[in-house]
């Protein structure tokens, strides 16, 4: 069969499918950026709520330095920002058409960051990995309110792919997106379940997405789930916890909620990346 014959055969698709494809997209088909935009907007909102413990000066009066807070001061696996919490909005959020404006997203709604089915559905990759190192922190100036987005880069060794296929032969680098942050680089509060990057040696379940530049990013507001450290836990205990979380997230993937509609991007560490680049850089008119 030739490509043209195949193309011709596709002409026999059911009428309702053909009609649907050329109709107005439903809210379900909104691209995933809505979720992360909403996450950022939600984070922006909570940042403005007011100063809480992390935002207050330390005992000696010095303000907390965020890079230090992320890289140096966080010794344990996942250090939460436990000062202010926001409860998820009850029920499914309405998804209106998101208006664009020079000031960013003008709408804000809450989502349940602890809903595994939802979060797995919204991410491109779900995997377990052990953190090798924290590499650098990058600040990106936001366009409004002089806020900054902070990205923490870490190197991890992927162990189990739950959703998507990342390479396991060598370590990969990914970014944690935190913020936005006010000009003084002090986070005053954060959504429930908000985490900074895990410490080296820890093994975690990570939910990440491919970004526009093919980087792998853990978006703001996505929870990192710790399995623990092989050095600190008994092997049986570690394996039991690992198996439990793997089963939990595989089950979540099998029943993923695609309401937020993952756009299925591919990052540079995907096993299919070379083929994908070849495919998308060919003249697909």
């Amino acid at each position: 069969m030739t490509e043209l014959q195949f193309f011709e055969a596709i002409g026999g698709l059911d009428d309702d499918l053909v009609r649907e494809a050329d109709s107005r997209p439903s809210a379900q088909a909104l691209p995933r950026w809505s979720l992360w935009a909403a996450g950022a907007a939600a984070a922006a909102l909570v940042v403005t709520v007011g100063l809480s413990a992390l935002g207050t000066p330390q005992a000696d009066g010095r303000p907390i330095d965020l890079p230090a807070a992320i890289i140096g001061a966080v010794n344990d696996i996942i250090a939460p920002w436990p000062r202010e919490t926001i409860k998820p909005y009850p029920g499914d959020p309405a998804i209106p058409e998101v208006p664009s404006s020079p000031f960013g997203v003008a709408v804000c709604w809450a989502y349940d960051a602890t809903d595994k089915h939802l979060m797995v559905g919204a991410c491109d990759y779900v995997f377990t990995a052990t953190v090798i190192s924290r590499d650098q922190v990058k600040y990106v100036e936001a366009s409004r309110y002089s806020e900054r987005i902070v990205y923490t880069q870490i190197t991890v060794q992927v162990e189990d792919n739950i959703k998507g296929s990342l390479i396991t032969e060598s370590p990969i680098q990914l970014w944690f997106r935190n913020g936005p942050l006010p000009e003084d680089r002090v986070i005053s509060s954060a959504p429930e379940g908000y985490r900074v990057s895990p410490a080296p040696g820890k093994t975690c379940v990570l939910l990440a997405s491919a970004w526009e530049d093919d980087d792998l990013v853990i978006p703001c507001g996505v929870t990192v789930v710790s399995i623990g450290s092989r050095e600190e836990l008994e092997p049986e205990e570690f394996e039991a916890k690992r198996a439990e979380l793997l089963a939990e997230y595989r089950q979540a993937y099998e029943n993923e909620d695609t309401k937020w509609n993952n756009d299925g991007s591919i990052c540079r560490y995907d096993v299919d990346y070379a083929e994908y680049k070849e495919g998308t850089e060919s003249p697909e008119k």
Binding site: G11, L17, V18, A21, D22, P25, S26, Q28, A29, G264
Partner: peptide, 18 residues
Amino acid sequence: LRNQDEAHRRVFIRRYWY
């Protein structure tokens, strides 16, 4: 295609049907 989500289905048909 019925087992794909709406967005993937829509994109595929727009490309290869239309």
